[in-house]
Amino acid sequence: MITLKNLEKVYQTDEIETVALSNINLEIEKGEFVSVMGPSGCGKSTLLNMVGLLDVPTKGRLTIDSNEVEEWPDKKLAQFRNRKLGFIFQSFHLINDLPVLDNVELPLLYRKGISGKERSKRALEALKKVGLSARTKHYPSQLSGGQKQRVAIARAIVGRPDIILADEPTGNLDSKMGGEIMEILQNLNKNENTTILMVTHDEQLAKRTNRIVHLFDGMQVN
């Protein structure tokens, strides 16, 4: 499903060259739930950004769903992200001016051929899956951290992606809330065979996934 070969990411400024990722080789099968662990600054989020096509690797090869995506133009990358990938972020990244339902609908806005009615229906379905169907008209500021993350999960799954990329999804939540979010992700993985790549600091949560990838100073240490 996802293949990384000799992947490298170097951030270059005028004075400093920072190697964020070096020689990463990873293969993730369809339906696998993989967690990425490592100390802060070891390149976990960078790895997730590469897989999520949010940043461009400096070297190496990235294949997703048998597609070599390095040379794709922006429009094609955007369409691919929209159809195949779902993102969950530590800081939720909800748009505060929009109610919950509209936040969840967001990915569908960029998909052609979906009517407003269909968008709302799918968003509602996604919210039901995360147990938030009663909060559709609330604004993010009216929700707790756990609820915000559920909205973010609903937004990630509303487009029925094959892959979910979660960047410390429980990082801003207490352990109870974190546990609930983890449960939702596990259910998605089990019931809908969604491939999940999750960055976490929490070893307990990582143990609940199929596989753990460890990073240190931008390198794989398995």
Binding site: A78, Q79, R81, N82, F87, H93, L106, Y110
Partner: peptide, 10 residues
Amino acid sequence: GLRMAVGASK
């Protein structure tokens, strides 16, 4: 960034 992440082109 979020909009681009969820599928908006530039």
